[in-house]
């Protein structure tokens, strides 16, 4: 599979791999069933290590665009590339390995209510076949990094909105994804917490993770000073420093 680059791979090959876009959309259209397209002719690229916001009014298609990236939906036309792979050409049994390179903070969190905070964060590692002894310390450290060090054994229903949000973020980043997708990650928190979360994303980005955040928190977007992709009625326009496709 794609991830398993041989350790003996040449420097040149490695360099080529790191400059290849993490995400590339080419004239992508998408519709649900027979409804009109919610995304029309979308084209953009995310280069490795970049940080973008995705904004636009409610219903503009932000979540739909993100779903195409984390392989929860297929484009109805055009081409979506992930780490250089045409997603529609990736066989089903190989898709999990692509998904494991992407961390997702869902708009509605999607935490598992029957598992503790600790087990929720450990989920992507368990799914990838890691043993508890191997991830115990990492998960604990990550939880304290997002300020949930005292809540390891709490169940999600017993957490506040902001705590759930941070738990969802911890789960998204626990396996050090190459790409982090976050859908309205500050939708449920006050401005101060939003800034803290933003700082967390920026820190991850500094460590090399490519980041794409959907948000209509204008203040936050402004405060970040990061490039913005703007969606309106399914059409994408670039603003402020975003890469040209």
């Amino acid at each position: 599979m794609p991830r398993k680059a041989a350790p003996s791979a040449s420097q040149a090959a490695r360099k080529a791999a790191t400059t290849e876009p993490v995400v590339r959309f080419e004239t992508v259209g998408m519709r649900y069933g027979r409804a009109p397209e919610v995304l029309k002719d979308v084209r953009f690229t995310l280069s490795p290590g970049s940080f973008h916001f995705l904004t636009g009014p409610s219903g503009a298609g932000k979540s739909s665009l993100l779903k195409l990236i984390y392989l929860a939906a297929q484009p109805s036309r055009g081409r979506v590339e992930l780490f250089g792979h045409d997603v529609q050409a990736v066989p089903r049994q190989d898709q999990p390995f692509l998904r494991r390179r992407i961390g997702v903070v869902f708009q509605e969190f999607r935490l598992l209510d029957h598992l503790t905070a600790f087990d929720n964060v450990a989920l992507p590692l368990r799914v990838a076949g890691q043993k508890p002894a191997a991830y115990r310390e990492d998960v604990r450290e990550l939880l304290s990094w997002v300020g949930l060090g005292q809540k390891l054994n709490a169940m999600p229903p017993a957490l506040s909105g902001g705590e759930k949000q941070r738990l969802a973020i911890a789960r998204a980043v626990v396996n050090r994804p190459e790409l982090l997708i976050a859908d309205e990650p500050t939708g449920n928190v006050d401005h101060e917490m939003a800034l803290r979360i933003l700082k967390l994303f920026i820190e991850l980005n500094r460590l090399g993770t490519t980041v794409l955040i959907a948000s209509h928190d204008r203040e936050l977007v402004e405060a970040s000073g990061m490039p913005v992709l703007k969606l309106n009625e399914g059409k994408l326009t670039r603003q402020r420093g975003a890469d040209a496709a």
Partner: peptide, 15 residues
């Protein structure tokens, strides 16, 4: 700091 559980919880919820 609280301790993580010794055994991971069952991934499927019970009914």
């Amino acid at each position: 700091m609280s301790q993580p559980p010794l055994r991971p919880g069952s991934l499927l919820p019970r009914n």
